[in-house]
Every structure is written in C-alpha cells, then in structure tokens.
Design a protein around this nucleic acid. Structure first.
Lengths: 207, 207, 207, 207
DNA sequence: CATGAATGAGGGTTCATTCAT
DNA sequence: AATGAATGAACCCTCATTCAT
C-alpha cells in the first residue's frame, strides 16, 4: 500500500534533506558555527525544529559533515582541474578558473570553508587544519613536478603552495564581496594566474 | 599630593585594565569570540566576574574594541615598516619581516585578527571587512608608487595587494602552527618576499 | 461468511493489539514509564509509530490501562489461590506459590506493578494506591476469618496484611533479581509462608 | 573589605544550598526523578533557574547525591539503633522505632528512598540496588548473631532480612499515607516489632 | 573598587502526537 | 489499516549581565 508510493516519498525526503542541507550551508556560511542556531536554519528552511532532528542527528554532526563534504567538493574540483592539464601554467589557470567558478556560482561553499568554520567546536579545528593541509598539498604537487622538470627555480614548494592558496582565497573572497562579481570573473582569473606563475618564477617561454 | 595619589590610582587601574585586556586577547584568540566566555577571561586574569563589568561595558564591546586596537597595531606596524623604506623590494621585505616578527613574538595578535573574530557578532563583519580593506590598501600604496616609477608592469594593483595580503596571512598562519617556528622565521621572510616581488613582476635589476 | 471474515479481522486486530500491549508491558516494566518511549515500544513490536496511535489513544492511557489490567490479573490470581483453600496456612501457601509462579514465569508483571509505575504520571498515584489497597484487603480477609475462628491471636489484621504484602514483594523482587531464580522458587515459597504464618502468630497445631 | 563579611556570606550560601537541597528532596520524593523538573524545584524554592546550576552541577548529579545522602542517613540511623541494643527483640524494636520516627518527622526521606528513585536514570538502578542490599544486610546481621546464640531457629536469614525490610517499608508507607499518622506511631512500632519477631520464630521467653 | 550570588533569555535536544498518503 | 514525515511544547543547561554587599 504505502509501498507503491514509497519511492516517491523517499525521493521527496531526499530532496528535502538536500534542501535543508543547502539551507544549513548558507546559514553556517553566513553566521559561522556558533552564531548559527538550529532555529535559524529551520526558520530559513520553513520547517519545524523537530524536522531538523528528524533528518540530522545534531547540529555539530551536521556541521562537520557539511564542512567535510563541502571541502571535499572544493578540493576535488580543483584537483580535477589540475589533473586535466599537463603543463604548469595551464594547471594553475584551470584550478583558479574552477575556484572562481565555484565562488561565483556557489559563494556559500567558499564562505563555509574560509569563514564559517572558525572558532567553532574543537573537532572542527582538525577538520579545518585538514582542509588547509589538503589545499596546500594540492598546490604543491604540480610545483614539485614542474621543479623536477626544470620549469621552476629551486624553492620551498610547500611554502609556495601555501602562499598560492592564501592569495587565491583572499582574492576570491574580495571578488564575491563585490556587487557584480561575475563581470570581474575573467579578469580575476587572469590576474591570479599571472601573479601566481610569476611568483613561482615560472619560465613560460621554456615551453 | 592629591594629584600624585590620583595618578597612581589611575595608573594602577589602567594597569589592571590593560592586563585584563591582554588576557582577553589571548582567550579570544585561542577560542574565538563565542567559545570564549567572560568567565574564561576573568579566571585567567585572576579577578572576579564583577570586575570585568567594572572595566568594560560588555563582552561584545570589548571584543570589538580589542579587534580594532589589535588591527590598528598590526596595520600601523606594517605601515611604518613600509614607510621606513623607499624602494619596493625593501618595503616588502620590511613589512613581511615586521609581520613575521609579530607572529613569532605575539601570535595571539595574528590569531585574533585572522581566526578569532570570524562568524562572531554581526557588528564584527564590518570591522573585519575594514581591517582587510586597510591591509589591502596598505599594500596597494607602494605598488601604485612603484608602478608610477615604472618599476612594476601594468596590473590591477588592488588585486595584487589582496593577493599579497592573503599569501602573507596563509604562510604566517602555517609558520606559527609549527612547533619551532622561530627557526623558520628568516627563511619564511625570504620566501614570502621573493614570491611577492616575483608575483608583482618586479624588476629588481632596474635599481 | 461476512461474520466469519469480520471475526477474523477482529481477531487479527485483537491479536496485534494484544501483542503490542504485551510488548508495552515489557518495555514499561524494564525502563519505567518516563524512560520508556513510544518509539521503544513500536520498535520492539516491529510496527510504525502511527500504528501505536491507531490502537491506543496515547501513552498515558495505555500505561494506566496496562497497570490496571496487570494489577487485576495479579490480584485475581492471588485471590483465587486463597479462595481455593479453606484453612489459613494453606491459603497463605497457595497465594505465595501463585505469586512466585507469576514472578518466575512473567517477571514483567511484577516489575510493572512494583517498579515500573512509580513517580510517573499523577493519575498513576491513585491507581498505585488502589492496587496496594487491594492487595492489603486481599490478605486481610483470610486473616479476619481466621481471627473469628480463633486461629489467630488478636491483632491489627490490616497492618498484618500490609506487612505480608510488603514482605512478599521484597522477597520476590530479590528472587527474580537472581540469575537462576527458578531453582530457588520452592525454598522461597516455603520461607515466605513460614515467616508469614509465624508472624501472624498462627497456631498450626490447632487444626 | 568583602573579606570581613565573607563568613556571613558563606554561611548564607550554605544555608541556601541546604534549603534548596531539602526542596529538591521533597520534589523528587513527590514526583520521582523524571517527572520532577528543575523548574519545579526552583519554583518551589523561589529562585531562578540559573541559581540551581550555580549550586549544583546538574539534575542527575544532585539526585544521585541526594539519594545516596538520604540512604546513608536512613541506613546509619537504623544501624545505630540496632547497635545500641544487644538482644534481638530490643534491636528490632529500636530499629523499627527509629524508622517510624523518620517517617513521621521527615516523610520525604522515606518517599525518596522507596518511591522517588525508581525508573530513573541507569546509574540510579545500582544506587537503588545498593540501598536495598544495605538494608537487607543491616537486618541480617542481628539475625545471624541471634541464630548463633540459639535464639532463632534455623532459617535463611538473608531472606528473613529481606522480608523484614519489605514488611517495614510497606507498613510505614501506609502509615504516612494516613491523615493523622503520629497518633498511630506507637501502635505501628508495636505491631511491626511483634510481627517481625514472631515471623523469625524468636523465643522471647529464653531471656 | 571589588566581589560573586543571582538572574533569565536563549540554545540544543527529546519525544508524544498528528495527519497526509 | 498502516505508515512515518512533520510538528512544537517542554526539557536541561549555559552564560552574559546585574546589583547588593
């Protein structure tokens, strides 16, 4: 009886869960973990507070999950962009482009990772450290590769990677703070890519 | 005589006040605005909770004040470092050196500005934006100057300034996260300075 | 035909209802009224939560009903044991034996009456008082009868009845708390019966 | 300054803590652990809810402490009564008298131990078992002693002790349920003592 | 000036209950 | 009949803030 419709119901439930998670990401991104209350989330989602606890075990678990999930998405997207290219200047350009795309299309993702999850629960510190570590390593890999190939001068590639990550974050955070960010997207990608490649001492003429 | 006593009293009061503020900075930097309780602060300061409210109107006001004060100190220090030099590569080196010094000597200052005050109170958003704006402008000024002098290729100096700020923040945050940070201080200054100057397309041989 | 079907349906419904009630008794007995959630009950019964509310109006009503029903069963069983005999020492022995049997065979019944329904809902206080009253009166009747026949010395039979009830409850609660209670069943019946008859000043040789 | 008055303040604080604990005992005794809310307690105590948490860490801790404390008081009082005498019939009489006194003077103590702490939190089960165990052992000691002296016929003294405890509890619970309980105190002590000694097969003429 | 007992708004979470399917 | 998603009152507890001493 109820079985016939169960598929439809399950789909609807999944859709609602997803919708609530997106709402939660926005609220967390906007206010940060502590300042965002469960009541804030359910109000924005238009459901009762009990509904939150029907879908998620508790606030902290959801936040950690969202943070990991979002970080995973962001990191994988950038990693794929890098993997899709073979020479450094294309890798950097692709990754920066991907980052900017995400920032323009889903700014909450960027906010959650860079702003929302700070000063929160102890278990978050590790997650946040883990994410920053992953981003650094992601940038470091192509640098080491290019160094091996003689495309980069000798340098502490780990530190360079950190600086690239920091430079991207800051430029992108400033980008999405602008009223009409989309228009500046292309220029931003170009500026960041150029700055990064120069900063690395990349010899573009060598190709 | 009366003046002397009064002065002494005020000195003592100011001293206590200052001590409490330093404690507060430490606690805020360590735990973030929300997780840091007034009780945490007064316990670490060794005073009663009522004393806190004798010296400060409330937690939020103190935090905002501390954030501004600390930001002011950080910005002024870097600005002075820049002002003390006349050519770009020295300006960058001096500012980075100053930043690293603060990070090594008073990591709480850096933590408060970059980590502690996020996702906290609404009024902080502006302050935080203001601080980042100031840092960007601080970096932008010497870039514009160097551009005018033909020492830098044409570029969006505002964006370059943002990226410098972001690169510094990230590299320094990683630095002070290390167990023995002091030893890496010199190398960090060199790495950052080199990366930044290269990133800007700075023609060092032109001098 | 229609009757047959209707009967079958009702039987099935009653069967399910009965099964759920038995489950509920177990859960209430084990956890007590407050700690036992409706979810606990339906999960153990293998039905959905809505089904609970199809069969029962609400948790409290069910609990009160179960408490009354179980008390009725326990009291009637003991009363019948007493009625089946004519002389006091046999009446006591039969009632104690019946009580121990129930405790060994359906410990949940005993737990529900003696442990599960305390400090629960206000309306339970009366029910609980009523049950204890009934048990006291049940024991008092044969005592009064034996007193009239000169088999018992003068005494406050009401108080004696209360003490018999209390002694039985405590001994039986201790019995079913043991790992292998069945083995001690016979001895327990003997001990209780002897203690009670002695306590009443029963002159067994007078028969 | 504040030091001079600190003694007075501390005394007042202790007094308030004690008063709140007594209030809590009453509420717990009346409603049981789960049904008694922290709001119930503070309302009856005439303080704000925060005051509760200023004096006590949380509801469960307070309850366990109160339960242990009260059990300790009850058990020690009865144990002392027993220790103050040397022959069994006086020991029983003294203990029963002490129990009845407590019941009449502080019925909440009895209610908390016999009614309030049931079906509560898991950790309470042990405490409750521990208390009943202690009461049983308390009664068993003089029985074993009297048995050694040939004052009691052979019997399972552990079981006898349980029954004595149960008989006392029930009789006393019924006593304090009466409107004018004090008047029945003397008779109750006599009835219980007589019933218990008879039940044990105590040979009073042997002295 | 300094103290810390006292307050209560508000946050996270549970769970009995309803109702559309 | 049966289901389980959805609800929201109510619970326990924290913590910024006040004020009498």
């Amino acid at each position: 009886m109820a079985y016939r419709t169960s598929d439809k119901v399950r789909d609807k439930k999944d859709a609602k869960r997803t919708a609530m998670m997106q709402t939660a990401v926005q609220v967390f991104a906007e206010k940060g973990y502590h300042a965002a209350t469960v009541r804030d989330i359910v109000q924005k989602a238009g459901v009762a507070i009990g509904t939150f606890y029907f879908y998620f075990p508790d606030k902290e678990t959801l936040f950690v999950y969202l943070y990991e999930e979002t970080g995973e998405f962001l990191a994988q997207t950038l990693e794929q962009a890098i993997s899709s290219k073979t020479v450094l200047h294309q890798q950097v350009a692709a990754a920066v482009q991907a980052y900017v795309n995400i920032a323009l299309y889903e700014p909450a993702v960027v906010h959650l990772m860079l702003v929302g999850g700070i000063g929160a629960v102890p278990s978050l510190h590790e997650k946040r450290s883990g994410f920053r570590e992953r981003m650094a390593q992601m940038w470091q890999r192509p640098l080491d590769f290019a160094t091996d190939e003689g495309k980069l001068p000798d340098q502490n590639t780990r530190r360079s990677a950190e600086m690239i990550a920091g430079a991207c974050d800051e430029a992108i955070l400033n980008l999405i703070a602008q009223p009409n960010a989309e228009e500046s997207g292309v220029a931003t990608v170009r500026d960041i890519t150029l700055f990064v490649l120069r900063g690395l001492g990349y010899n573009s003429s060598a190709e």
